[in-house]
Nucleic acid binder design. Structure first.
Lengths: 340, 340
DNA sequence: GCTGGCACTCGGCCGGTCGGAGTGCCAGGA
DNA sequence: TCCTGGCACTCCGACCGGCCGAGTGCCAGC
């Protein structure tokens, strides 16, 4: 009914005003700035009801109202309209990302771009190895018993590992091994590689078997946690902007959590490429992120994300704008990686 | 004479006290905490002289004294004794750095270690390409006219670039090219490679000449500025600790300068592996670093540094401790890279 | 050349006051 | 039934003035 409808409009107005001014917003100011068609007194009644339901709160008696996490959640789910990026912003994205020379460069530019666009801290995940396919597997002899294995994926990621050979190897064997492994793995998804390894070892010529097994084992090791995923972080300077206002305690635990990477990676593990994930304040599992919100989305051409990217900022953030920016950048990065 | 000598001891005491307490230090407290053998009144006279000479200053009339940049400089140059690391710290270094799987991992661990050891922001530079030698050069066909060039250096750094071929190439030509290029470049320092390119192109079989030229050009392009040097930064959370105390304005410009990388890289361009470079406050060319000090040293086995590493913190820092930590870590990283 | 004493100077803290913004409630009107 | 204007009340934050303490510079004496 019209009743509830107006209440939601009041909530939206409160969120918008609070996000832009960072001051608790009062009934009078609200009536003045937004054409709600009712008097401050009526708004006060609505505000009391909204507070009752837990969407807004007062920092102290006789101050204006501030949205709660629950209020932001409602705002994000039902009230915010998608804010299309301006043409200038779209052009900035293209201009910024084109001309990157390699993956590292692409992601570095992406994180800077995102930080600049949203004025928040930006995080970008490297394409996960497990969902990437092998483009090439190279072996470089370091000594007679040590090989350097270099894995190049179709997303442009490069991983290197030293493999201790079970016995001495000569150049010819290395060449043979290289051919064998590339025939087996090139084009295959890494996550599927584990299945093909046993057969590969079995069918290998006897003198290479131990070696094939050793290299394959190392290859699979790249998939375990800490190396598997990498993160690029940028725009931490944005945390300093009004930090005292936005983050009650300090920014320190937040910075620590970001450097920890694991926390953010876990958050991003869930995102798909189609829908933007928003995690608000207390919704975040990790304590250090309790006062922050996280907006992220997966990037990648197909239906499954190659990796995620997003921004971290105060709960008091421009959700609509950040969601739009994150989505647009992810889409562009997806294209960029698909065509290279 | 004994006169000047005592004055310097007073300066040292002031620096030490101020670093540990962060309070302007007065004559009385100095006399109490340090066995200088004279009364506060005498110390006051010395302090007046030190202030006259510009080594210390008063934040306001009738407050204690605080060292100036010039005072810290004198302290670093003449007064601080090298503080050997504790056994526990040495063991921590080894334990932390051993078990790294690749270069990225080594540098990531290094930066975390350094940040933890010094409780400052740590920066570590990737080994510069120009001073590295080629370990292997790999070519992977992407299409009939595009090749992916992968450069692996003896320091474990990997760079990749896409090369547009002047004409169509088949697998055989790629193999030929690979052999040719590796014969020419493997083991050579990259900085010397530019000299060998013309001869290489000339002596190449005619059907490969254009291709050799294209790949070589791309190889040399990796040496230009922004890609040539990379930086890993860690421990920015340490900036938040007492930021208001240490950095008058905000930490923001400092964080921005760090993310900019160029500023830090320029500072580090000068360091050699033998002596620790200390740059204090106003001595830093870049404005954002004006309130900070930078302690750095080169790492690398030989006489020329492969790269630099260091810490950035408030001018009010434990110079002796940080210099020792930076040096010890650099030495260990140097060994680690040399033996791999 | 060192020392103790002394007057002086500020910055920071504390308590009290005041104004403004905002609220809740109530009675009257559409 | 719902909206509105009015009114009394609350509480934060800014402002002010006085006090205290730490620290200084200077001076006369040893």
């Amino acid at each position: 009914m019209a009743h509830d409808d107006r209440r939601l409009r009041v909530l939206r107005a409160i969120v918008e005003d609070y996000v832009s001014t960072n001051d608790p917003v009062g009934s009078k100011a609200l009536a003045a700035r937004h054409d709600l068609g009712v008097s401050p007194a009526t708004i006060r009644n609505d505000m009391a009801a909204l507070e009752e339901e837990g969407y807004i709160t007062q920092p102290h008696t006789s101050a204006g109202r501030v949205p709660t996490d629950k209020g932001y959640r409602l705002f994000v789910d039902r009230l915010s309209s998608v804010k299309p990026l301006s043409g200038a912003e779209r052009r900035a994205i293209e201009k910024f990302l084109d001309g990157a020379v390699d993956l590292h460069d692409v992601l570095g530019r992406t994180v800077r771009l995102l930080a600049q666009l949203t004025r928040q801290v930006a995080v970008v995940q490297y394409p996960t190895l497990s969902r990437s396919a092998v483009r090439h597997l190279e072996l470089v002899p370091l000594s007679t018993t040590r090989l350097l294995m270099v894995l190049i994926t179709d997303t442009g990621r490069v991983e290197q590992r030293v493999v201790e050979s079970p016995g001495e190897v000569d150049a010819e064997q290395v060449a043979e091994l290289r051919t064998l492994l590339n025939a087996a793995f090139t084009g295959a998804k890494l996550v599927e590689a584990s299945g093909t390894v046993p057969g590969l070892v079995e069918n290998a010529p006897p003198h290479l078997r131990a070696l094939v097994s050793a290299v394959s084992a190392t290859l699979l090791e790249t998939l375990v946690e800490p190396t598997e995923d990498r993160l690029v972080i940028g725009g931490t300077a944005n945390l300093a902007r009004g930090s005292a206002l936005d983050f009650p305690g300090t920014v320190r635990p937040l910075l620590e959590a970001l450097e920890e990477q694991v926390v953010v990676l876990r958050l991003m593990a869930e995102v798909g490429p189609s829908t933007v994930l928003v995690s608000i304040g207390e919704e975040n599992a990790h304590e250090a992120l309790t006062g922050a919100s996280f907006v992220s989305v997966g990037y990648g051409a197909g239906d499954q994300a190659l990796g995620g990217l997003g921004v971290v900022g105060p709960t008091r953030m421009d959700y609509a704008g950040n969601m739009a920016a994150v989505r647009a950048v992810a889409r562009y990065v997806g294209h960029l990686l698909a065509e290279s």
